[in-house]
């Protein structure tokens, strides 16, 4: 870690007392520690990672130690103890996506951005990460950029996505659900019953 330790940093929630109170109020009084995960999310969304300084602050808020906070953070895949890029590109690599070309997709992005798994570009704009199943198997392959899913990312869409991100913008999502997800009126068989033995 190459963050600079500034112990004079303003506490994260100093000017967000209302938000802090709201998060704490979601849990019962004897369950204050439950607020740890949402507090980590809150910090990370704004600062793109959670520094050791912030870990100490959160520990104090929920009544535990910074080591415990780090222990919780490191258990989960999506909390970062180092800053990620402006665009954190996560490529699902589990079976259904792999069957739809996620390995090739990942290699394409890696070549395009000049970084390998887990790295961030020198200008801090892009991070690239292989992740495990994100629940988009029916619309594989899927690329998650920050909190947004881009689904059925074929070669053309991947090119388009990279170009848009280079311009500094998240392109609009193309929402694809496949299957039945077209409303009941259309949710009827696409084919008459199969004869047994066909196929």
């Amino acid at each position: 870690m190459n963050e600079t330790h500034t112990h004079t940093q303003t506490p994260f929630f100093a000017d967000k007392q209302e938000k802090l109170a709201e998060i704490l109020s979601r849990y019962p009084a004897d369950g204050r520690r439950s607020a740890l995960m949402p507090l980590l999310w809150e910090v990370q969304r704004e600062e793109r990672y959670v520094s050791e300084e912030r870990m100490r602050e959160l520990a104090e808020i929920v009544g535990t130690t910074a080591t415990e906070v780090k222990g919780v953070m490191s258990f989960y895949s999506t909390y970062h103890d180092q800053p990620v890029g402006t665009f954190h590109i996560q490529v699902c690599s589990t079976l259904s996506c792999a069957l739809a070309g996620s390995d090739e997709l990942f290699d394409f992005l890696s070549n395009e951005l000049g970084i390998v798994n887990g790295e961030t570009t020198a200008d801090g704009r892009f991070s690239l990460q292989k992740v495990e199943c994100v629940g988009s198997c029916g619309t594989a392959p899927v690329v998650q950029v920050n909190d947004t899913y881009y689904e059925r990312v074929g070669r053309g869409r991947c090119r388009h996505l990279v170009d848009a991100l280079r311009q500094g913008e998240l392109p609009p999502v193309w929402r694809e659900r496949g299957g039945d997800t077209v409303g009941a009126a259309k949710a009827e068989p696409v084919k008459q019953p199969t004869d047994r033995g066909e196929g």
């Binding site: 079976l95 619309t139 594989a140 299957g179 949710a187 084919k191 008459q192 019953p193 199969t194």
Partner: peptide, 28 residues
Amino acid sequence: QISGPVARTGVYEMPMGATFRELIYDFA
């Protein structure tokens, strides 16, 4: 739910007891 190389991947609501063949061929 059905994924992998089939024509129409996705979620299908079906009565329990329907066969894999019905899901894979008739719907997907």
